[in-house]
Amino acid sequence: MLSVADLKKGTKLILDGDPYVVTSFDFVKPGKGQALYKCKMKNMISGSTLDRTYRSGESFEPAGMDERDMEYLYKEGTHYTFMDQQSYEQVVMEEDAVGDAKNFLLENTKVAVLLFGEKPIGVTLPNFINLRVTQTDPWLKGDTSGSDSKPATVETGYVLRVPPFIEENELIVIDTRTGEYSTRVKG
């Protein structure tokens, strides 16, 4: 168990069955009064935030988290299926928990899946990922509009801005942390 004095930014604990991470923490104590611990916490599944004030003596269950290497297999409706690289067990994650990572998931992509107990609650992608452009308008040589980028759709359906020289069927590198174009894959 964690005591309230153990809490700090980044501590993960269980509240009402859900895992939360402490995002800010302060200790307040009015003159000669009782110590109060003001916490802001974020639900690690839904992303919603909570403000709570605790008194000394309260205790919490730490949220046990485990990160495992997995391979993305396929999607069915709003369910994404991954396979543990070691045990070959399959886990199914809801689209909400996959979050923005869904924009960059191609079958057989290697990812890290964050588990809360047995429940998968998040995906960490490689920082850079290669995706093929499926649709983009050709660059008109005479275009003098001064625009230095154009929209392009990649094979996952994700749309981003790319430089004008990128053509359909080209493989490009995307930074998954920002969702932005990074460079093109030569050859």
Binding site: A5, D26, F27, V28, K29, A35, S56
Partner: peptide
């Protein structure tokens, strides 16, 4: 003992 925060 155990007083730590932005003002303690």
């Amino acid at each position: 003992s155990d007083e730590r925060g932005s003002r303690h």
